[in-house]
Design a protein around this nucleic acid. Structure first.
Lengths: 327, 327
DNA sequence: TTGAAAGCGCTACCAG
DNA sequence: CTGGTAGCGCTTTCAA
């Protein structure tokens, strides 16, 4: 690795001048700049970020905390975050925390040890250690002062319920996401508002997790509990797909005998057949906006709007019946 | 952030002693060690990795190069890599390169600038810049001297072909993965070996990419080209699922009129209905082993076996017909 | 067994 | 406009 010192020597100037030229800070004469540029070129020099970071006490790294990268909703978020931070010259330190508070703390410590510039977190119950650094939360709103990007869960809940309400439901069951996740509560509120307005009965099936591995087992339990369910509002697409599989195995035709709507619009939801109707959250955009938000804070020290809500979109596919004419 | 200096002051020793105590390097008296430990405890001190890395010219970071984290095969690899490096005290710098050689070079440069300890790459055509650092390639074998973890593509190709050959195929079409990817060539060789031995005719449909976004479009083209195909060996699960959807839309029953086998065994392949038969690659394990391999090199400077081949497994699900009795 | 000091590569202050 | 220099936090000689 060539250093600034070698560049200085070759250019015939001091390291201070090289540094100023490189960072466009302070005065540098045209002549000096030219010489430095030539030397940089010739030596194929690029600055060592570690040294830079040691001095500034801030690196060009951003920590990304994810609950589970193997859950299909998160890779897209990660991609959005990555593109967003790259755009502004940062890179990502990955922290997959698996709903494990200890692991989360470990990562936060590692982030600190690496002079991280900030953190973007999509995990639910943050360790308080995160407050020591600039951070943005994704897909979640908590204390009012935090920066956050989330989507409109209440509307999403209403949209999902309307889809079902409009399609001649016999026995509605709402599969409710984990209680401690604020967004599931919001969605449920949206569901219930619509269903109550329409005077439609419904039942609740509470789940404990969004974990991929539990989906099939949960789907099984669901049908044990509600064998007569014919219209389901699922907690997310993964669980919806598991439910569809289970229903099909039980001989129910989709959507005639069993209709369902999911949440998230993961890439696969449109690839299967019948396609899963769902509420699309802009996962990539959520990540990208979150990255922008954090970078703004980092660079400007403030933001006009630290709380970004993204709209959801309804995707009607083959997993629900045709809409009633007379609604 | 508290520093080693403050620890030294509180403990009443020099920073050198603190450093030695922390790293178990050189002589430290029991008494001194005790005092240091107490001070560390009291100040809640943890060392700054950036300073450490500046001096050692090696950080505790490992770069991970992925072709596309949104492609369902890679998150599991990433998880395996992450668990593997964490185990050994390293963290991951994420580099999603999108089949873009420029982006790959950019990341390699960023890795270098951050005194990365090594790189784990799952991208296909590596930039030569990677040779400057210790690296392990995943799911690919190239020059004979590199460290690599890959799965047994030839056997995988044979297994897939046998499944089809055993199930009364009428018109076999092999969907071949991108030409420049060594593993697709190996799988094709495995396919052809079996089919030729069995004197079965088949046709080839060449694809240009494994990209998720192209799957549906490619599936459409496939049926335009081979409307009569009834038994397909797909290039991977994503494409297989797209093909299943297209077949179903065209009114073909699976597996009676259209049977198909994929490759990879992504998490979703077993969640759909009918379930996709496929060749399972141990993605998580591949990542984990790759991480171990790299860490071994980093710590010991050598490894007994730098080329790890992992076995593939056949997963028979509902997308293929029942096996012929008389085979 | 210990501490003073040099130095990793870079930035920023200050004097010229 | 420029260069010398201090110092970011840590590790590692080297002499005591």
């Amino acid at each position: 690795m060539t250093t600034i010192k070698e560049v200085a020597k070759l250019a015939g100037v001091s390291v201070a001048t090289v540094s100023r030229a490189l960072n466009n800070s302070g005065y540098v004469s045209e002549a000096a700049r030219k010489k430095v540029e030539a030397a940089v070129e010739e030596l194929n020099f690029y600055p060592n970020e570690v040294a830079r970071s040691l001095y500034q006490k801030k690196s060009k790294l951003i920590g990304l905390l994810l609950p589970d990268i193997a859950n299909p909703f998160f890779p897209l978020i990660a991609k959005g975050v990555e593109d967003g931070v790259n755009q502004r010259g940062y890179s990502l330190l990955l922290g997959n925390v698996e709903d494990d508070l200890e692991k989360e703390k470990d990562y936060l410590k590692i982030f600190l040890q690496n002079n991280i510039a900030g953190v973007i977190s999509a995990v639910q119950g943050d360790a308080k250690e995160i407050k020591k650094m600039p951070f943005v939360t994704l897909d979640r709103v908590e204390s009012d002062r935090d920066l956050a990007v989330h989507s409109d869960d209440y509307t999403g809940g209403m949209l999902a319920a309307e889809v079902i309400a409009d399609r001649d439901p016999k026995e509605i069951v709402i599969m409710v996401g984990p209680k401690d996740v604020p967004s599931s509560a919001m969605r449920l509120a949206g569901n219930e508002k619509v269903l109550k307005e329409r005077h439609l009965d419904y039942q609740l099936f509470q789940t404990q997790s969004y974990k991929f591995e539990l989906a099939e087992q949960t789907a099984h339990q669901f049908f044990e509990t509600f064998p007569q369910a014919d219209s389901v509002i699922a907690s997310n697409d993964v669980y919806a797909i598991a439910l569809m599989k289970e229903a099909t195995k039980r001989g129910q035709r989709i959507p005639e005998e069993f209709q369902i709507i999911g949440y998230d619009d993961m890439p696969f939801s449109r690839m299967m057949y019948p396609g899963l109707s769902t509420i699309a959250q802009p996962a990539y955009e959520m990540g990208y906006k979150g990255a922008e938000l954090l970078c703004d804070i980092l660079e400007k020290g403030f933001v006009e709007n630290g709380r970004i809500q993204l709209p959801v979109t309804l995707k009607i596919r083959e997993s629900v019946r045709k809409k009633d004419k007379d609604e």
